[in-house]
Each structure stands twice: as structure tokens, then as C-alpha cells.
């Protein structure tokens, strides 16, 4: 199963990005193969519609869960219809490594 995590950098030490649509990087983590994929977010500086565009990007990778600090109103209904689970984690000090460790145990 694939999980997307929003991150503000492209390393395991980076922190969880509190925004979904305008985060720095998406990290796609595969819980079965333990594989990691770093996707730079092309919608980072978009004026409008960053959320839906990001959903499209993440959904194209067949992600089933998304971990982020916050989800906008436009995204919630979109993810609901795509049956992607949203996980809201309001802890900006958490690093990507810690989150992956939590997913593994």
C-alpha cells in the first residue's frame, strides 16, 4: 500500500509540511517494498488550484493514504470520491523518518 507524505525537503530528515497543495515535496512510501519516491511539487507557487492539481499528481501514483498537516475544502470532497484516506497530523516538528517509523511498527 502506498502512502503520500507532504514534506518541505527531499531527505528523510525533512519535516512534515503543514500544507497539502503547496508543500515542497511529496514523498510516496510503499509499505510493502519499503520503497521511497521523492516528487517535487510543481504546484508550489501556483496562484490558484494547487490542491486539486496536487491530488491529481498523487492519485496518479495510486496512493491510498495521504499524511499532511491540513487539507483544504476543495480537496476533501475530491479525496472522498477517490477513496483516499486523509490523515491530519498537526506536528510540524515531526520528521519524515519518524513518520515512516510510525507506519512500520
Amino acid at each position: 500500500m502506498k502512502v503520500a507524505i507532504t514534506s518541505n525537503g527531499n531527505s528523510l530528515e525533512s519535516k512534515l509540511d503543514q500544507r497539502f497543495g503547496r508543500c515542497g515535496y511529496f514523498i510516496i512510501y510503499d509499505t510493502e517494498t519499503q520503497g521511497l519516491e521523492f516528487l517535487p511539487n510543481p504546484n508550489k507557487d501556483v496562484q490558484e488550484g494547487a490542491g486539486p492539481a496536487s491530488v491529481q499528481l498523487v492519485a496518479s501514483r495510486n496512493v491510498q493514504k495521504i499524511i499532511s498537516g491540513e487539507f483544504g475544502i476543495k480537496i476533501k470532497s475530491l479525496l472522498d470520491s477517490l477513496k483516499i484516506q486523509m490523515i491530519v497530523l498537526k506536528q510540524p516538528e515531526k520528521s519524515i523518518k519518524e513518520i515512516i517509523d510510525m507506519l512500520n511498527n
Binding site: I67, Q85, I87, L89
Partner: peptide, 29 residues
């Protein structure tokens, strides 16, 4: 979408599969 809050890792999550009941926190189990 029903939202749940986990006490051990203080996250919030929803249940996209309405028919299935959630048994554990998706993050910390």
C-alpha cells in the same frame, strides 16, 4: 466523512470506505 482522532499519536483521520469499520489508527496502529 467520519473523522476520528487518535489519542496516542494525536492525529486525525477519516474513513473513505464507509462500509468498513476502522479498527486501528492508520498511522500508529
Amino acid at each position: 466523512s467520519e473523522w476520528y482522532s487518535c489519542k496516542s499519536c494525536s492525529c486525525y483521520f477519516n474513513n473513505p470506505e464507509k462500509q468498513e469499520e476502522i479498527k486501528e489508527c492508520p498511522l500508529c496502529r
